[in-house]
Write a protein that binds this DNA or RNA. Structure first.
Length: 299
DNA sequence: CTGCATGTTAGGTT
DNA sequence: CAACCTAACATGCA
């Protein structure tokens, strides 16, 4: 569940709490959640100071002294909490970090145990396949670069946007929200998008992500902020888990459809699959082209 | 009991 | 090589 806006919120909140702190000890309740050498995880990190916290796609990177970085991926149900040592332990708490001279703990809990923590020598971070393979951040890519990747590939647009090697950070919620905002059908072939549609999609992705970060992410199912408060953006979802509700733009009901194994939410009325644009048809001024939204959009 | 939720990777097929 | 499909991971919920 945690996608770019949720991970970004966690990273920003963590920065305010743990930068400069020294790790006193770590309790590892479920060693298999550690990637790399499980045996020396706690001893390797003990005594180190937290220098910085950052995000790469949906990964959290905690940079420590001693040229060590801790790579954390929450996958679907991972949660990080920074809470008082007195606060009751949640059921699936797998790691507890204690800090020197501090009455708060950093806790990692993960119901389904898909997430992981991975200590890596900082200089070698970028060579890790899981980071090296990631595409550009959707908030940093330029329109030109975005247009290039979208048009060079020949894939349905939704799975393309979900592919972390193409763009790093979008998940199921924000692809559906962005496609709705741009008025593009999730199964539209990426190579058939007009220049206008590519730009609309680019702005929709960035607009949705920025808004979602402003609202501290979407709390559906699992995600909570590090102080256990929920995010706020789920109230602003236009399509995700809104099946049956009227579309905010055209009033037609939002539908849910299984696509490539995942739930996909869209408005079949204002997100239509457009046929590939053919220049010679346009030059001929065929009636269907003149009357379609597409021909108005294209030069 | 069944099916569904979702991120990612592995492995296989087209 | 690219695109696409399914299974797997583990748990809880309707």
């Amino acid at each position: 569940m945690p996608e770019l806006p949720e991970v970004e919120t966690i990273v920003r909140d963590l920065r305010l709490k743990i930068i400069g702190q020294q790790i006193e000890r770590i309790a590892v309740n479920l060693p298999k959640m550690v990637r790399g050498n499980q045996g020396d995880f706690a001893s390797r990190l003990r005594g180190l100071f937290i220098k910085w916290v950052r995000r790469r796609g949906k990964n959290i990177i905690v940079d420590l002294t001693g040229d060590l970085s801790l790579l954390i991926h929450l996958k679907m149900t991972g949660q990080l909490f920074y809470v008082s040592i007195d606060s009751p332990l949640l059921k699936h708490t797998h790691f507890i970090f204690d800090f020197v001279d501090n009455d708060h703990q950093l806790r990692y809990s993960d119901k389904r145990q898909f997430g992981h923590m991975h200590p890596v020598d900082s200089p070698q971070l970028e060579q890790l396949p899981e980071l090296a393979k990631l595409g550009p951040d959707p908030l940093e890519i330029t329109l030109e670069e975005f247009a290039e990747v979208v048009r060079r590939r020949r894939r349905k647009i939704k799975p393309l946007l979900l592919d972390q090697t193409v763009l790093a950070g979008l998940g199921n919620i924000y692809t559906d929200e962005a496609l709705h905002r741009a008025g593009i059908h999730p199964e539209q072939l990426s190579s058939t998008l007009s220049g206008y549609e590519v730009e609309a999609l680019y702005r929709a992705i960035q607009g949705v992500l920025r808004k979602a970060i402003e609202h501290a992410g979407s709390s559906v199912d699992n995600y909570l902020r590090i102080d256990a408060r929920p995010g706020d953006y789920q109230r602003l979802h236009q399509v995700y888990r809104c099946q049956g509700k009227p579309c905010s733009r055209c009033d037609h009901p939002i539908v849910r459809k299984k696509m490539g194994g995942r739930g996909t939410y869209f408005c079949p009325h204002c997100q239509k699959i457009e046929p590939p644009f053919k220049h010679h048809e346009f030059k001929g001024h065929s009636k269907s082209n003149l009357n379609s939204k597409r021909s108005m959009i294209r030069e």
